[in-house]
Design a protein around this nucleic acid. Structure first.
Lengths: 335, 335
DNA sequence: CTGTTAGCGCTTTCAA
DNA sequence: TTGAAAGCGCTAACAG
């Protein structure tokens, strides 16, 4: 049986309050401090966080509810968030929504019952209703990577539409006009599609229907199938914007399989600087999201919200995502 | 403020014990059952798990301490383990050891203080000492993917050395003799190297020093650098065994960069059927680990251990990893 | 600075 | 079946 604070009392003859105060960094006469420290060492005492939580009503644990734990993107976010939290003495309880609203609601409910102090959420959809249990429980939620249809929550995103716009501007600058886009049908996909449209309109380029793909299927498949279709066209695009990591994987599979050369035959811009773009040949030109900043900002806001409650209005942080040139875009000399 | 069991008492006029019994699935007169259910709905009551844990001494939370959360391998294991645990009503607290023994010890200590019921551990090294805090606390630990220098713990691994042996046998069957190996310097790397040796000895093939690489650097770098060296050799190998996913990424980078053709100029066998092998061209021939089984077996044993304590001896489960043929190995017609 | 006392919200004897 | 009471291990007033 693990030692308790009462064992320390028997060992030292001091009162519980004194020991508790010592444990929480309060002032104790140095003579007593010594005694306590000895007893702690002797008994190998470690505070029971459960008991502590029951009275303080803080578990120093936050829930990380992620739309899809299998995606590399969330893995990296997880890594950074976990590091930030541990640095501040917080633990992280992880739940996978598996791209399903119902599971998302359950995950949040689960976290609330576990009395987490706050929740970091990568939402599945724009629907705020799965979060209701956290709201009722008064548990703050910070949204990561995606907004939802409610401005009641703090939120850290990148400026998806202008990042996509800059990417397409770049393609156009390189001389491309026949540009296709493949995007997932959710928040980031839609935003990035908007940026694509804006850039093309600005340049006065008409985009035929068959250059625009979007879908709700698993992203890698979407990328793969869409690219296959694009390559069948008689009037093929010269460049493709792929709006997320998984889509890019599919696109690359299709390109490789077809024996088409990139960037010789087709140029490609993707999103997210994860492992593949680094190992592929040619190096992928991409929009790099500041993963570490997304995580650390999210954690910072969440902890502040936990400290201060609703003393400040919901924060909407939009981070800048830079375009990183690789070698997957061909520069077409203009006439 | 969230409703408590006392609010239910005020609402129903019943005793705390009765309500508690209902909550825990005990027998209650159906009349009272109704009352309680109504009150729960009306007050939106949800039990406080912290309070419950304090008295039952079970948190229904397990710790997942992972050597390196950034690796795709652990991400997939995480996903499966999390699903298994949630199915059984358990939560998962995640900690990253960041490939560091000290951080591993801290992570385990952290989990113990959080009163987790058990720990799933992908160890950083073979050293059992970081686990001591869990042992002292009487918290069961199940090792995943790697063994350590102690047979006191349950453990789920694959049969690394024979899987590697089969892979090399296959290369030899395909007519290769000049076979190089690149392995990380830790448990799985060493085991797989043993399999490599066994196969080569069996076939009576001498392996020159410069065909064997191992190192403690980050795996992707190791693969990249080693492959670069191999390609400089005048007497190049015709095939390479890469003993883990990250190493393979590096190897592929080096191959791509050098303009060497796979499998035309060089054949490659890797480990782990994750995303890259599926998107790369040619499809990588590899040893596929049964990720889902590793996770579910680990969870099963851990929960059993939590239930039954030391009533049964430490389990050592070794799962079979199958070789999956892709197109990255050239079949050399034998003379 | 120290100790006493009263809980946190729940489960669990034990007697009724 | 039910309820009163004790207590899980700790913190937080409040007196001393």
């Amino acid at each position: 049986m693990a030692a308790t604070i009462k064992d320390i009392r028997s060992e030292t003859g001091l009162g519980l309050a004194t020991i508790s105060k010592y444990l929480n960094g309060g002032n104790v006469r140095s003579e007593n401090r010594q005694k306590i420290e000895e007893a702690i060492k002797k008994l190998d005492y470690h505070p029971n966080e459960t008991a502590r939580s029951l009275v303080t009503k803080r578990t120093r644990t936050i829930g990380f509810v992620v739309n899809n734990i299998a995606s590399s993107f969330s893995g990296v976010l997880l890594q950074h968030a976990s590091a930030c939290l541990h640095d501040r003495g917080y633990g992280m309880m992880i739940c996978d929504s598996n791209l399903d609203k119902k599971q998302e609601a359950e995950s949040i409910r689960f976290c609330v019952e576990k009395q987490v102090d706050g929740i970091l959420l990568i939402p599945v959809s724009k629907d705020p209703s799965p979060i209701s249990s956290a709201e009722k429980g008064g548990i703050p939620v910070v949204l990561l990577d995606r907004e939802i249809e409610s401005d009641a929550f703090d939120c850290v995103v990148i400026d998806n539409s202008s990042a996509a716009e800059r990417a397409v501007d770049y393609l156009i600058d390189c001389g491309h006009e026949r540009i296709a886009v493949i995007c997932s049908e959710e928040y980031t996909g839609n935003e990035r599609f908007r940026g694509f449209r804006r850039s093309m309109e600005k340049a006065g380029i008409y985009v035929p229907e068959q250059y625009m793909y979007s879908g709700r299927t698993h992203s890698t498949e979407l990328g793969y199938n869409s690219m296959k279709e694009l390559l069948k066209l008689k009037d093929k695009p010269t460049a493709v914007l792929s709006t997320n990591y998984e889509v890019s994987l599919g696109v690359i599979m299709a390109i490789n399989e077809s024996g088409v050369k990139c960037p010789g035959d087709i140029s490609l811009i993707g999103f997210d600087e994860l492992i593949l773009p680094m190992v592929m040949n040619p190096k992928l030109t991409l929009v790099a999201q500041p993963m570490e900043d997304i995580a650390s900002e999210g954690v910072r806001i969440l902890l502040q919200r936990i400290e201060e409650g609703k003393k400040f209005p919901p924060q909407k942080v939009s981070l800048y995502a830079a375009l990183k040139e690789g070698e997957s875009v061909r520069k077409i000399s203009k006439l």
